[in-house]
């Protein structure tokens, strides 16, 4: 199974590199979709079907919106060269951050272990508490739903607020009424 993960990770990285480097906007958008599809497959093989369903639907919708919104009206290719200095700066910054990050990777728990798995004799950890008492306390058979809508529902409320605010901003900036007044 780990070989499959490495193949999928390589696929995502190659798709992301092509999406950044290509000159054609349409192939760039398609490569973004391919990267999201690889992410969805990884979630599926890690036995997280909730996240996989959400990822694949959002990816398809984002692909449609990006193609419809950008391709049909703008120039469909990127022209001109990149600035040499900004490329050097970004590569150096990413390398330094990666070298710092390798120290952090050593402190991670083992692959597949929950992050808060340090258990004392008197207290249960949070993840084990959800797994053993989730059905009894919330009544939801899907343990993911009981976590995101009951134990950690305050976080979901924050997400909903972020989505609401961003849609509000997009609708206000792109609305129709103001353009009529400007035109006439």
């Amino acid at each position: 199974m780990p070989i499959l993960f490495y193949v999928l990770l390589l696929f995502i990285i190659i798709a992301a590199l092509i999406a950044v480097e290509t000159q054609n906007l349409l192939s760039s958008v398609i490569c973004i979709g391919a990267a999201g599809f690889g992410g969805s497959l990884i979630f599926l093989f890690l036995k997280a079907p909730d996240i996989a369903i959400t990822q694949i639907t959002v990816e398809v919708l984002a692909l449609i919106i990006l193609i419809r919104a950008t391709i049909s009206r703008d120039k469909t290719f990127i022209s001109g060269d990149r600035e040499f200095f900004s490329v050097i700066v970004s590569v150096v910054v990413v390398l330094v951050l990666f070298l710092i990050g390798t120290r952090v990777f050593d402190t991670f728990p083992k692959f597949g272990e929950p992050a808060f798995a340090v258990e004392t004799k008197t207290e249960q950890t949070a993840s084990k508490h959800y797994l053993t008492n989730g059905l009894k306390e919330t009544g939801a058979a899907n343990i993911v739903a009981s976590v995101i809508l009951d134990y950690r529902a305050y976080d979901t409320l924050g997400e909903a607020t972020v989505l609401f605010t961003s849609i509000l901003g997009a609708t206000v900036l792109l609305r129709k009424q103001a353009k009529i007044k400007v035109q006439t």
Binding site: I53, T54, A140, N142, V144, A145, L149
Partner: peptide, 13 residues
């Protein structure tokens, strides 16, 4: 959404 994988976000999309 509370019985099988899925939920409000995926259903809304």
């Amino acid at each position: 959404g509370h019985l099988t994988p899925g939920g409000g976000f995926a259903g809304g999309v």
